[in-house]
Design a protein around this nucleic acid. Structure first.
Lengths: 170, 170
DNA sequence: GACAACTAGTTAGCTGGCTAACTATAATGT
DNA sequence: ACATTATAGTTAGCCAGCTAACTAGTTGTC
């Protein structure tokens, strides 16, 4: 995601009037709320990325490492990883290449199926996670601590409602 | 943004235990909530993009058209647009090129400052907005309708708290 | 008036998303 | 056995973000 709206850029009175005149039935509140939610989503993701960058990682590659560590033997295949990460095989191809270059994962050819190969988390990759994760978890806890325990469930519930309601875009 | 997490991919018991053993002090709830929020943000943005795509637009270019329409005379400059859209001048350069190619904006050289030029919304650009916006506004209203009026303010308030708490990433 | 410093915009190269088209191999069906 | 179909991975080309380095022009200062 990446949303081209600065919260400060919410339109002023004059502009609102202009748009409301040209396009009737504009619900200013809804629009402003919707855009703010998108914007905050972007900002949260950017914060995470900046944090990962301090450890020399970015979101995409970091997540691949985590998916590998989840496996019993730290091993998987490109298509499996693509499926689990929710990205196309083409995208996973690029992510894997970057990780191979950095030596955080290694490639092992499949003797059974010559089209395929396996990807293994290397010692360097595990070390990288062991460096990042103990720094990551407490920060996440602190961040989520900003929302009172009880209201977190409500927050999630409402966001899920919004997401589901997005069917009106189809 | 773009978050590599499928909600379905929340880790199972065994995996949770594995991570909790290696990295102590993991607050599973916080992590899962945080990642879910990021994921939903991405999905909302993707929905908007799919909608805009049905009108032959994408988020970046659409937002530039809106910023131009906000101006009294539908005119602005690349750096002004970059600043208002919250992107780098380099990115705006690319967006403007795309819009120029599609004829949705036009370029007008500045006689005062030969480094600069102005970007104007063309009739075709205005027509495109006149096609998209009357379709956009009611859909946004319907989507936000999923969250009861009273809880919207809370939702926003909590998201803003989270965003601000992201300072712990710095 | 000349030089320094700043500003406007572009370009190159990186990240990471996508689709569509491609290669190579495997599996299936007749 | 061979032909078809399906699958694994890559590549090319698009979108959109970024930084850093660059050109060109403007401004300010001495």
């Amino acid at each position: 995601m990446s949303v081209m709206l600065q919260l400060k850029d919410l339109p002023d009175e004059k502009v609102l009037k202009k748009f409301a005149e040209r396009y009737d039935g504009v619900d200013t509140q809804s629009v402003s709320h919707f855009l703010s939610i998108l914007r905050i989503g972007t900002e949260l993701a950017e914060s995470l990325d900046r944090f990962l960058a301090t450890h020399g990682l970015l979101q995409g590659r970091w997540w691949v490492l985590i998916l590998l560590m989840r496996e019993d033997d730290q091993i998987s295949t490109p298509s499996e990883l693509a499926e689990k990460a929710g990205v196309s095989r083409a995208t996973m191809s690029g992510l894997i290449n970057g990780l191979l270059r950095d030596g955080l994962v290694a490639r092992k050819d499949d003797s059974q199926d010559r089209r395929s190969y396996s990807i293994i988390l290397t010692a360097a990759g595990q070390n990288k996670l062991d460096e990042v994760m103990p720094d990551y978890y407490p920060r996440i806890k602190k961040i989520m601590g900003a929302v009172p325990e009880q209201q977190r469930e409500d927050l999630l519930k409402q966001l899920i409602l919004l997401k589901e309601q997005c069917k009106v875009f189809d």
